[in-house]
């Protein structure tokens, strides 16, 4: 395998990590008000993410940084081209992080309720937009080689809001929402757990319909690659398994299979792309691929050494965090649901 292909795979791995990990973060945020009835429950729900969400988000930053390092043309074209959607994602991530950290600083109900609304919206928006973005990448967008030989995005904002991409957005929105509910089923206890299990079943069915539509569209009209068809089939199989496991009350299995489904979704998208990274809808000659978008062999070599050494270490200590915080949380753990961290309770 050439280093270019290796880095294409590695970036796919980073997105898999991001989709699985921040995927359930988004899902927990989206379903926050559906699974948690009162203040104590909401607090318990958000506490399941407490020690994890920031580390999960780093997968995105590293995916961005790695794309910059390994495929600068991809990084430059993608983020300047998908300018407004990316801006909305960034805006959501800013609001969301602050909302998690600040919601319980005051004890006032209104303060908390506003931040909770912010969490729901700022989790749903990126969950939708990542799907829109990836569907557009796979479908191909208007890329054109300029006089200087630079490949640039020449479509506008509304070009990105085509039906296929919007369907892709709905798929990730519901997929992440289900994944988050499954995570809550695994991590909580009491009525939250029950609510989450039920909700995961309902959301999972909607996801199944949307995903089958999206994958059919992809495999029958966008690409004729057999491996993409096989992978799409595997996505469906694992998703059916997820729903069955959830129904059978096997929470661990359900979360595992839904994580595998998310990984397979990313693999399917990347397999559909390969060897392109951003196909042009105007002319195949204007597509960005793993060769014309890439860094030099030397840079890829340097980054390979760093990635091969660091990625296992990161996986070990991040995995350890999940082990440390493996205990289920329920609203009974919330001793003073109304209290804020900065209230004068100790004076």
């Amino acid at each position: 395998m050439s280093l270019n292909s290796f880095w294409f795979v590695l970036i796919a791995v980073l997105w898999i990590g991001y989709f699985i990990l921040e995927g359930f973060d988004f899902g927990v945020g989206i379903t926050l008000k559906l699974v948690a009835k009162d203040q104590a429950e909401r607090r318990a729900v958000i506490t399941t993410l407490g020690p994890l969400w920031d580390g999960n988000e780093v997968w995105l930053l590293v995916a961005g940084g790695a794309t910059f390092a390994a495929f600068p043309e991809w990084y430059a074209t993608l983020f300047s081209g998908f300018y407004l959607p990316l801006f909305l994602i960034l805006l959501s991530l800013i609001v969301r992080g602050v909302a998690f950290e600040y919601r319980s600083k005051y004890g006032k109900a209104q303060w908390r309720n506003r931040w909770d609304n912010a969490i729901v919206i700022s989790s749903a928006v990126p969950a939708l937009l990542w799907g829109v973005a990836f569907a557009n990448i796979v479908r191909g967008v208007p890329l054109q080689k300029s006089g200087k030989g630079v490949i640039e995005y020449v479509g506008g904002f509304f070009n990105l809001l085509n039906p296929y991409a919007l369907l892709g957005g709905l798929v990730t929105l519901f997929l992440f929402a289900t994944h988050g509910a499954l995570f809550l089923g695994l991590k909580t206890d009491g009525s939250i757990r029950k609510q989450a299990n039920e909700l995961a079943g309902k959301l999972g069915l909607v996801t199944a319909v949307l995903a089958v539509a999206f994958l059919s569209w992809t495999t029958f009209s966008l690409t004729s690659k057999t491996d993409v068809r096989m992978l799409s089939l595997a996505v469906v199989v694992f998703w059916v398994g997820t729903l069955a496991a959830n129904r059978a009350g096997r929470e661990g299995v359900a979360f595992l299979t839904s994580s595998i489904t998310l990984a397979l979704v990313v693999i399917t998208l990347f397999a559909a792309l390969y060897p392109n990274v951003m196909p042009s809808s105007l002319s195949p000659a204007d597509s960005l691929n793993i060769f014309n978008a890439s860094s030099t062999h030397y840079t890829l070599k340097v980054m390979t050494v760093v990635a091969v050494v660091m990625t296992p270490i990161v996986l070990i200590y991040q995995g350890w965090t999940y082990w440390v915080f493996r205990k289920r949380i329920s609203s009974t753990h919330i001793t003073s649901p109304e209290a804020g961290v900065l209230d004068k309770i100790h004076q």
Binding site: V58, V62, G65, F68, A69, P72, V302, M310, Y317
Partner: peptide, 22 residues
């Protein structure tokens, strides 16, 4: 500059951001 500038940025993510956030 991506061939050069991207490398320290990616290293920052892998070596620093994961460490501090986790």
């Amino acid at each position: 500059v991506g061939d050069i500038f991207g490398a320290p940025l990616a290293m920052e993510g892998l070596l620093a951001f994961f460490l501090e956030s986790t």
